[in-house]
């Protein structure tokens, strides 16, 4: 069996977000990383491969992006992916990206496709379910576990106030979130060396139009400064929450 992990190339989560004329992100000094959810998904894919007794023999990663995303892809290879695909296009909206990924892999026979629940740039929370529809296969969202049960695969799905354990025949897309694994893996020295020679296929995009357009960006208005309450007079806080903020 083969696993595909969809990764997104995003600004580091501690980036101070600034825009140029409110039109585009000011990328000066921005560190780019694998979207944290996708990194967890990749880690889980490698764990599954290692514990599968050979049942899973290949883990690939894919991203849609220009040549500038290659360091991020190489990092995924250094962490342990066996091969990578880059669809050579600037990422449009999620519809565009999911469509490109579907077209690039539709005949590749992936059994399990993992995608993160959200990306920390545009917070679309929509890629994985779109991909499932484009490929006409099951998509399961809010996934906090993917496990082997003999040769069967079970998927844990978080629901309000609990979780469901699903039996899930391949192929499927699992949209993963917290719980999928504990810590993201970091590349080893050997991983970094071998990543250079692992296959990275570059494919050209197919025709597709984005359905939405980002017009402009703005930063939140600064909150009025914090009102300090004397620790010796905690009652005042309760008064304020009741009479001024009216939240209790």
């Amino acid at each position: 069996m083969k696993i595909l992990v969809c990764i997104s190339h995003v600004p580091d989560t501690t980036t101070k977000i600034k825009f140029i004329d409110g039109k585009s992100l000011d990328t000066a000094g921005v560190q780019w990383i694998i979207n944290p959810w996708d990194e967890l998904a990749l880690t889980r894919a490698l764990e599954l491969k290692e514990s599968s007794n050979g049942l899973i023999d290949h883990v690939s990663v894919i991203t849609v992006g220009g040549p500038d995303t290659e360091p991020t892809i190489r990092k995924a290879l250094a962490i342990g992916a066996d091969s990578a695909i880059r669809v050579n296009a600037a990422a449009g909206d999620t519809f565009f990206v999911a469509y490109q990924v579907a077209e690039a892999i539709k005949n590749s026979g992936f059994d399990i496709i993992l995608a993160g629940i959200d990306s920390c740039d545009f917070n679309g929370s929509s890629f994985g379910s779109m991909l499932g529809e484009f490929l006409s296969i099951t998509s399961v969202s809010s996934v906090s576990g993917v496990n082997f049960n003999g040769n069967d695969i079970s998927v844990d799905r978080e629901i309000d106030g609990g979780k469901e354990i699903l039996s899930c025949p391949v192929p499927f897309v699992a949209i993963v979130q917290k719980g999928i694994t504990k810590e993201p893996r970091i590349p080893s020295m050997r991983g970094i060396m071998t990543a250079r020679t692992k296959p990275l296929a570059v494919v050209e995009p197919v025709a597709c139009e984005a359905l939405t357009e980002f017009l402009s960006f703005e930063l939140p208005k600064h909150k009025a400064s914090c009102r300090m309450v004397d620790p010796e007079n905690v009652k005042e806080l309760v008064e304020l929450l009741r009479n001024e903020a009216k939240v209790i």
Binding site: C120, N123, T212, E213, P220
Partner: peptide, 17 residues
């Protein structure tokens, strides 16, 4: 208008369909 960059910013987005 939607939240982006994990609520660090907002974006105005047009839907064309």
């Amino acid at each position: 208008t939607k939240k982006v960059y994990t609520a660090k910013a907002f974006a105005r987005v047009a839907i064309k369909t």
